[in-house]
């Protein structure tokens, strides 16, 4: 069981999982079902928690365990459950209607991944030997971030925008744990708290938009112009 203590193996493991995070992200772009989307998000968040745990293990950074647990609690359990309840409650159609069609969306996601790798490349300094996890995970994190951003643009419904925002935040979280082994605990807690409140606030807004407009389609919110 040597590999359990070999940081190199840990790095490889993390890189692999990070790749899966990206795969999930692209899958969300392609997925049309809202509920499936939320579940994919949960799975992605779970992977993140796992990455956090792996890093905590190999780098002997116990406070990252806290982050991992928080992730599981908030993003794997609480937020998907809340979102799914909201979906049920406001009885929207479960179909996602993206603005750009799915194949093209996937292609764009690919392009964004490319951009992210170009950006990540500049962090590759083999000569200094620094940053054990290196540019690879950063590139993934940026990809996830950019694709999440793209999903926000590409989604019509208020709710789908909310969890696109959440996936975007997952990218940042990935970067945070991979690059810096997490933020200081206070900050992490603050961030989680904010995410939670943001979901609450956005949830209220989603609910009220649904009530007022009898629709969740935010592309119809076009009264304020000029």
């Amino acid at each position: 069981m040597d590999f359990l203590h070999n940081p190199e193996f840990g790095d490889k493991l993390v890189t692999l999982m990070a790749a899966f995070v990206l795969v999930f992200q692209i899958a969300m772009v392609g997925q049309r079902s809202l509920i499936m989307n939320i579940r994919l998000f949960g799975a992605q968040s779970f992977l993140l928690a796992a990455i956090a745990a792996v890093i905590a293990h190999y780098n002997h950074a116990p406070h990252i365990y806290v982050a991992a647990v928080m992730t599981v609690l908030v993003k794997v359990i609480l937020v998907p459950v809340l979102l799914e309840r909201l979906v049920d409650r406001i009885e929207i159609r479960h179909e996602i209607e993206p603005i750009v069609n799915v194949p093209l969306s996937i292609v764009i996601s690919g392009g964004l991944t490319l951009v992210a790798y170009i950006v990540g490349e500049s962090f590759y300094h083999p000569e200094t030997g620094a940053a054990s996890l290196g540019h690879n995970t950063l590139a993934v994190a940026i990809s996830v971030f950019l694709i999440g951003f793209f999903m926000m643009i590409n989604r019509r419904k208020a709710l789908t925008q909310v969890f696109a925002l959440l996936t975007l935040e997952n990218g940042i979280f990935l970067a945070a744990i991979c690059l810096t082994y997490g933020m200081p605990l206070v900050v992490d807690l603050g961030v989680f708290f904010d995410v939670l409140v943001a979901v609450l606030v956005l949830g209220i807004l989603v609910y009220r938009i649904r009530e007022t407009f009898e629709s969740m389609d935010v592309s119809k919110l076009r009264r304020l112009r000029g």
């Binding site: 926000m152 925008q161 925002l165 940042i172 970067a175 690059l179 810096t180 807004l205 009220r208």
Partner: peptide, 29 residues
């Protein structure tokens, strides 16, 4: 219209601040 404004405010603000968070992470790094 206030709902519309609030939605745009919250979403754009949220996206923007997530970029800022990313920046903060990188500064830390």
């Amino acid at each position: 219209t206030s709902l519309e404004a609030a939605w745009k405010y919250a979403i754009i603000g949220g996206v923007g601040l997530s970029m800022a968070l990313f920046g903060t992470v990188l500064v830390y790094y």
